[in-house]
């Protein structure tokens, strides 16, 4: 049943022209950053070659590119999460799900999985772009894998937060702005926290992405993303259940 809802969500995303426009624009922006980084790398390559322990192309090009994508994700994910529940409410299609023999858990997990599949597609595009470097040089596959996994986890946590905010309102635009504000707020918490203040930094998903970005698989960060996603998914389920109670 989760899969049925996920499949429908995924297909209806691909059926809207704006999605393709977004994917295309996104790939264009990624490619732009990618080429800029690559160009910069080629210019300093000669000097780097003289250093003893010089950063490789993966570290110099791919890692900063993925860090940029992580920031763009902050604006991108809310655009897709806004429709998930708010639009169903506005179009009165939520009744179909509410009166069907499916639980709130299945509705939320189905929608979340469907969106995650789509975000996986967007992330895969950028990873493929980086992998194209393999034609000319040797790549640090571990670093790329860590980054891709980190991006996916980051996307999942953003999607969970966006899904929850979408379940709070009837207006998709309000859901989008709300999710964006929440994500920016978390990011600001991270960059404005004093260096030693780890408690505040620990709140922000972006700070947990940094270890993935430098190629580390830190179980603490992994746990953070999982807990963050699960917490907001549970809140969204709760919210949908409350819909039946409060109307």
């Amino acid at each position: 049943m989760i899969f049925t809802i996920a499949r429908k969500e995924f297909r209806s995303l691909l059926a809207t022209p704006s999605t393709w426009l977004f994917l295309g624009a996104l790939q264009f922006i990624f490619a732009w950053f990618f080429l800029a980084r690559l160009d910069a790398f080629l210019q300093v390559q000669a000097q780097l070659a003289q250093l003893a322990n010089a950063p490789g192309v993966t570290q110099a090009v791919a890692a900063p590119l993925f860090a940029t994508i992580a920031l763009i994700m902050m604006m991108l994910v809310p655009v897709f999460t806004m429709r998930l529940i708010a639009e169903e409410r506005r179009n009165r299609t939520m009744t179909l799900l509410m009166t069907a023999p499916v639980s709130s858990t299945q509705i939320v997990l189905g929608k979340f999985t469907g969106l995650l599949l789509f975000l996986l597609l967007a992330i895969a595009g950028s990873v493929l772009m980086v992998l194209s470097l393999a034609a000319g040089t040797q790549l640090d596959k571990g670093l790329i894998f860590a980054n891709a996994l980190g991006l996916l986890l980051l996307a999942a946590s953003y999607a969970a937060l966006g899904l929850y905010i979408s379940s709070l309102t009837v207006q998709p635009v309000v859901a989008a702005i709300g999710a964006m504000a929440a994500l920016f707020g978390l990011w600001l918490v991270e960059i404005s926290a004093a260096d030693g203040n780890t408690a505040w930094r620990a709140l922000a998903p972006t700070s947990h992405f940094q270890s993935f970005n430098s190629g580390l698989l830190n179980s603490g960060d992994l746990a953070f993303f999982l807990l963050f996603s699960i917490a907001f998914l549970l809140l969204a389920m709760r919210r949908i259940h409350n819909n039946r109670i409060y109307g």
Partner: peptide, 20 residues
């Protein structure tokens, strides 16, 4: 709820249609 709802077919006031 699952078994009970499986026995019901419901058309609300506004048909719950996905327009796309």
């Amino acid at each position: 709820p699952k078994q009970a709802k499986a026995c019901i077919g419901f058309l609300p006031e506004t048909p719950p249609l996905y327009r796309d």
